[in-house]
Each structure stands twice: as structure tokens, then as C-alpha cells.
């Protein structure tokens, strides 16, 4: 494998995924943001990829030269922000 000088740079800080791990995922066939996410967990942490998604898209583009439409975005699911179970099940003002 081609050793990059910056392979140890963190990309997804929530899940601690490095640039090298993302490049490896791409070599193993990841072609989209979702493909990288499934292989590495990049974008599956607390911020749900709000910080790293753009970086992952840039890496995919740099490695493969694909268009933004092919690279895509993360799939969006509720809740789009972290929510405590307490507020999900509680009454108004309820806490667990």
C-alpha cells in the first residue's frame, strides 16, 4: 500500500478514524460517503458527520476523481441532533 505522509491525521474525531483508514476503505471498494461510513464508522459519532462529511467527500474526490453526485452524502435519520432518552420518553419537563 502506498504510504502517505499524512495517513495518521484524524478525519472523524468522534469515532477516531484516520485518513489512512479512509484511504484503505476506498482501496477496498468504498465509492461513496456511505461506503466509507460502513467500513470505518466515519460519521457515525455524536456529530453524525457534520464535521467530517465534507472531509470524507474531499478524500473520495481526491482518490477517485468522482463527481459530487456519485460521492453523495450521508443518509439522514432522526434525531438529527443528539437527544437524551429522558426527553424522548418524558412528559413535558420530564427527566430520566
Amino acid at each position: 500500500m502506498n504510504e502517505h505522509r499524512d495517513d495518521d491525521v484524524l478525519i472523524c474525531r468522534c469515532e477516531e478514524v484516520t485518513l489512512g483508514e479512509i484511504r484503505e476503505a476506498i482501496q477496498n471498494g468504498a465509492r461513496t460517503v456511505t461506503g466509507v461510513k460502513r467500513r470505518t464508522r466515519a460519521g457515525m459519532g455524536l456529530c453524525q458527520g457534520r464535521t467530517c462529511e465534507r472531509l470524507v467527500q474531499q478524500i473520495l474526490r481526491a482518490e477517485l476523481g468522482n463527481a459530487p453526485e456519485e460521492i453523495g452524502t450521508s443518509t439522514v435519520r432522526p434525531p438529527v441532533r443528539p437527544v437524551s432518552f429522558g426527553s424522548l420518553v418524558g412528559d413535558e419537563g420530564g427527566k430520566l
Binding site: P78, P79, V80, R81
Partner: peptide, 25 residues
């Protein structure tokens, strides 16, 4: 915080209250 938007135009909101408590409506 609006945490979800669903068909039939329903919005799930984690509503904050003055006492700091939160509840999803």
C-alpha cells in the same frame, strides 16, 4: 431543536424549558 421532519408535515422538536428541562414534542 428540531430533530426530525416527517411526512404530513410533522416536526419533532426537543423543546427546552426555562428550568432547563427538555421534552420532545
Amino acid at each position: 431543536v428540531a430533530i426530525g421532519l416527517f411526512k404530513e408535515k410533522t416536526v419533532a422538536v426537543e423543546r427546552g424549558f426555562d428550568n432547563g428541562a427538555k421534552s420532545v414534542v
